[in-house]
Design a protein around this nucleic acid. Structure first.
Length: 426
RNA sequence: GGAGGGGUGGCCGAGUGGUCGAAGGCGCGCGCUUGGAGAGCGCGUGUACGCUUGCGUACCGUGGGUUCGAAUCCCACCCCCUCCGCCA
């Protein structure tokens, strides 16, 4: 949600920010509605001021045992005015909410200009893609040959865009999740958190999924939303609260299932488990001081990269162009891992600084220390650390052998009962 | 699913029609005290908005209603808790 006062004072910058996202200017419309609302508010307040004064006189007169019917008649004339003006004020409030709530966050100054993927800027490239002296297969063929990845079985019980993992690959997924959680909690200061996977409207609104992206989510019959990412519950844990400045940053990590109804709607990535309705993700969230959220984004991105480094996977970090930014983000780094099966770098993590955009929506504030009054909105950040399903793909494809077996990366072996190679029949 | 109880400021908790933006406590800030800390004492401490630099308005879960006037009375809704039932 945008700060109406900021728009008032920075109308041109506001429209310029929207333009960088490829959106039409709207400040003029917003400010006109805002002016009408303020005029109405003033009218209401003046009427109430008169009413309150008269009511006080009535009370005083009655306590003295005096007649007050003249005063009562006078204040009675204000009732309609107040009721109608208040209704008008609420209508204008709703109108402004309707204008502002679908608007995405403004890009950070240092987010690259441009409207599509070609605008993305590669920040760094780490590690070398493996070279195979045989024809490398993708994870679908490898998984099928191992007898551990079954899309047909999943389709029978759930339909398209689901997968059944079995045996060594099922265990590999669990090992990856546990490895990621342990690194983030033990080395980087994230507090392990196990949030609900179903949330209410207010939470989905707080992180920006609602009202605009309801169609991307699954919803239960009794009105819960299935989380598309643990960002939703983790970030909302700070909602409606006033935190202590000394407690910032608050860093949390969670491994949850993620549910996306939109996955595959565009017909992209129809093969394999790149894009699924349900997948596992280890998510990082930070509630940060506004003055330090930029450095927190760098820190968080480094925490996600650490996982790839230790898994020995080649990757690159890309700063997203304005047009590619998510709804709530002001700056985003995507981390793309090398997938031999696709002969390409593919997104495995996305780390974003949302500034105070989500904090306003969910009312996440902190009280600056050393002063008894006043609050400020916190900044919120989130990043995958990492998408577990895609990490599994990456391991399978990068660690494949000519015989179709998959070598278990060393850091995962303690999580796999010291298993060194995943073979068919295992 | 059945029955009951309850939502008040950063937190706890009083308050049944005007003197309530709201007692008291905790916490927090400043000061006194101390070698220092603590205790103790004193003072101060909600948020948002509007017009204007001092006022005004709103907010006691949300929205309606009654009334000259609502935290307080009425209605609807949301949420939380307890007990019973069911259940991983």
């Amino acid at each position: 949600m945008h700060d109406i006062r900021w728009i008032r004072e920075n109308a041109e910058a506001f429209d310029a920010g929207l333009a960088r996202r490829g959106l039409d200017p709207i400040a003029k419309k917003v400010l006109e509605a805002d002016a009408r609302r303020r005029a109405t508010r003033t009218k209401v307040q003046e009427a109430k001021n008169r009413r309150n004064g008269l009511s006080e006189q009535i009370g005083a007169a009655r306590r003295r045992g005096e007649e007050a019917s003249a005063l009562v008649a006078e204040v009675g004339g204000l009732k309609d005015l107040i009721r109608d003006s208040e209704a008008e004020e609420r209508r204008l409030d709703a109108g402004i909410e309707e204008l502002l709530s679908p608007l995405p966050n403004l890009p950070a100054d240092d987010a690259p200009d441009g409207f599509d993927e070609t605008a993305n800027v590669e920040v760094r490239r780490v590690g070398e893609p493996p070279r195979f002296d045989f024809d490398a297969q993708d994870h679908v063929d490898l998984g099928a040959a191992l007898g551990m990845m079954d899309f047909e079985a999943a389709a029978r019980i759930s339909g398209a865009r689901f997968v059944v993992l079995e045996g060594g690959l099922a265990r590999l997924e669990r090992a990856l999740a546990n490895f990621m959680l342990d690194v983030q909690t033990e080395e980087f200061g994230y507090r392990e958190t196990k949030p609900p996977s179903l949330v209410r409207d207010a939470a989905a609104y707080g992180t920006g999924q609602l009202p605009k992206f309801a169609g991307d989510l699954f919803r239960t019959e009794d009105g819960y939303w299935l989380i598309p990412t643990a960002e939703v519950p983790l970030t909302n844990l700070a909602g409606g609260r006033i935190l202590a400045e000394d407690d910032l940053p608050i860093r949390r990590v969670a491994c949850t299932p993620c549910y996306r109804s939109e996955a595959g709607a565009a017909g992209k990535d129809t093969r394999g488990m790149i894009r699924q309705h349900e997948f596992t993700k280890v998510e990082l969230v930070a509630i940060a001081h506004p003055d330090r959220s930029d450095e927190e984004l760098e820190y968080m991105t480094g925490c996600a990269e650490a996982i790839l480094k230790r898994l020995g996977l080649a990757y690159r970090v890309v700063a997203l162009g304005c047009g590619d930014l998510g709804f709530s983000a002001r700056k985003t780094y995507d981390i793309e891992v090398w997938l031999p099966g696709q002969d390409a770098y593919r997104e495995i993590s996305s780390c974003s600084n949302c500034g105070d955009f989500q904090a306003r929506r969910m009312d996440a504030r902190f009280r600056p220390g050393g002063q008894p009054r006043g609050t400020r909105f916190a900044h919120t950040l989130n990043g995958s650390g990492l998408a577990v399903g895609r990490a599994l793909i990456a391991v399978v494809e990068n660690y494949q052998r000519a015989d179709g077996a998959v070598v278990v990366p060393e850091v995962l072996r303690p999580y796999m009962g010291s298993l060194e190679v995943i073979r068919a029949g295992g």
